[in-house]
Every structure is written in structure tokens, then in C-alpha cells.
């Protein structure tokens, strides 16, 4: 192996990363633009962040979005985890194939169709559209993602741990809470975070299922952009990127640190008699 990367590798790396991050970098840079024109650099300023604080419309939309994301992510995590447990644990029950297919369908279903069918359902049963219909729609969308994440963890789970708990006198329900759940917790948390972000950035399904008074942030941004991009939007997006990036960085540092600690403990234990 050559230590120095070849020009080909360097070029493909640069091209790949610019393709991924150039638009985002541009957006972040222009959010600090003093000029009102989006494409003309007028010097550094934080004025758009200040004006954002006074924009009640955007603040309201952000609050709706966060509440929708929190509630839907939590419900989707509970439902998705239960679905994953049923699929992995209870073997070949009647209709298992059908059930697993149905849990995963929303993964590949075009969002437009999911949104439209939910809209038709809400209209048919006479459910007033608004905050709760968006929440329900987001649970439908994200629970299958949670199920996939939790299922992959459960497949590698050592069943004899649960059997050991049963053997020691712990009934099945308590065994799930005391043994299974703590051990699949990382996957459940990852599922929750995935569900939260899915809900946070969903535009299509929210547009179909929302009603008066329940405008989410993506919907607000989209409607404003149609009237022309303002640097204020850039500022909102920069804040969102900041929040997501911080979450990802903290999560990866925590994982890395745990791995290092575990490897060290295992080395020490192996050296012991």
C-alpha cells in the first residue's frame, strides 16, 4: 500500500464532498449576509437571526413542528418496538409474512400516496384535520423505520439472556422490561431519533394531512420560498442544521468513547487469571 493518496483518489474525494456539502455551506454562509439580496454578498451580519426572533409566524411553525415530532416519534417508537419484537420473537405465527410485509410497506411507498390515502381516510371518517392528523400521519410514516432499526438489534440478541431471567423466576413481562429493553435501548433510542428527524423535515405528508392552525416549519419555509428566498430562511435552516449536526456529533462521540472503554476493560479482564 502506498502511503500517499493518488491524484485520482484526491479528486474523487473533493468532487464527492463538494457535491454533498457545497449547497449547505453556501446556505450557511449566506445566512450571515448583510445584504437583503440572496445572491449578492454584502458583508458579515447576524441581523437575520435577530429578525427571526421577532418573526412570530416562523416561531409558531417551529413550535408546532417540535411538538409534532416529539409526540409522533415517541408513539412511533413504542409501536415500532412492539412490532419488531412480535416479528422476531413469536416465530412463525399465522400471517407473519403478511404482517412483516405490511409493516415495511410505508418504507417504499411514495410519500404522495401515503399522504393522499391518509387524507382520504381522515375525510371519510370525518376527522377534523389539524395538529393531531399530522401527528397520526407521522406515526404511520416513522414506526416502520423504528421497527427496522430495532429488529436488526433483536436478531443478534442472545435469547438465553431472556431464558436465564425466566429460569431465575422472572415472569415474561418483567423480563422484557428488566432484561430485553435495557439491552436493546441503543436501537430504540436510535429509532426514536430517526423518527424525530423524519417528522421534523417532512413536507409532503404534512401538507396533505394538516389543517388550519397547524403549519409545520417545512411547510412555512416552502410557502415563503415561493414568494422569494429571504436571508431569514437561510438563518432558520442554519439553526436546523446546527441542531442536527450537534446531535449526530454528540451521539458518535458517546458511542466511540463507550467502545474504547469496553475494549480496554476486556483487555484487562483477559489478562486476569
Amino acid at each position: 500500500m502506498n502511503d500517499r493518496p493518488s491524484w485520482f483518489n484526491v479528486t474523487s474525494l473533493v468532487l464527492g464532498f463538494s457535491f454533498l456539502y457545497l449547497p449547505i455551506v453556501l446556505l450557511v454562509v449566506y445566512s450571515f449576509n448583510a445584504s437583503r439580496l440572496v445572491t449578492v454578498w454584502g458583508g458579515f451580519s447576524t441581523q437575520w437571526y435577530v429578525s427571526l426572533i421577532h418573526n412570530q409566524g416562523i416561531l409558531d411553525a417551529a413550535w408546532v413542528t417540535i411538538r409534532v415530532a416529539l409526540i409522533s416519534a415517541t408513539c412511533a417508537t413504542i409501536l415500532g418496538t412492539l412490532a419488531a419484537v412480535a416479528l422476531v420473537r413469536y416465530g412463525r405465527f399465522h400471517g407473519r409474512t403478511l404482517f412483516s410485509g405490511m409493516v415495511y410497506a410505508p418504507l417504499v411507498m411514495p410519500e404522495v400516496i401515503t399522504g393522499l390515502s391518509l387524507l382520504l381516510l381522515f375525510v371519510a371518517v370525518g376527522f377534523d384535520r389539524g395538529f393531531w392528523t399530522v401527528v397520526l400521519a407521522h406515526i404511520t410514516l416513522s414506526m416502520c423505520f423504528v421497527a427496522v432499526v430495532v429488529q436488526s438489534r433483536l436478531v443478534t440478541f442472545d435469547r438465553s439472556l431472556e431464558e436465564a431471567a425466566l429460569d431465575l423466576g422472572c415472569p415474561p413481562g418483567k423480563t422484557f422490561l428488566k432484561i430485553t429493553l435495557p439491552l436493546i435501548a441503543p436501537a430504540v433510542v436510535a429509532g426514536w431519533m430517526l423518527a424525530f428527524t423524519l417528522s421534523l423535515d417532512d413536507l409532503v405528508i404534512a401538507s396533505f394531512t394538516t389543517g388550519p392552525g397547524a403549519t409545520t416549519l417545512p411547510m412555512k419555509i416552502y410557502s415563503q420560498v415561493r414568494l422569494g428566498v429571504t436571508p431569514e430562511i437561510n438563518a432558520v435552516c442554519t439553526i436546523l442544521i446546527g441542531i442536527v449536526a450537534t446531535g449526530v456529533i454528540i451521539a458518535s462521540i458517546a458511542t466511540k468513547r463507550r467502545e474504547v472503554e469496553r475494549a480496554r476493560a476486556e483487555r484487562l479482564a483477559a489478562a486476569a487469571p
Binding site: D158, S160, L161, A164, A165, I179, L183
Partner: peptide
């Protein structure tokens, strides 16, 4: 148990 099945947490 053969795998010991100690509760890792």
C-alpha cells in the same frame, strides 16, 4: 447456560 447468559448491564 452454555453461553453463561450473564446480564451484561
Amino acid at each position: 447456560f452454555q453461553s453463561y447468559a450473564l446480564f451484561p448491564h
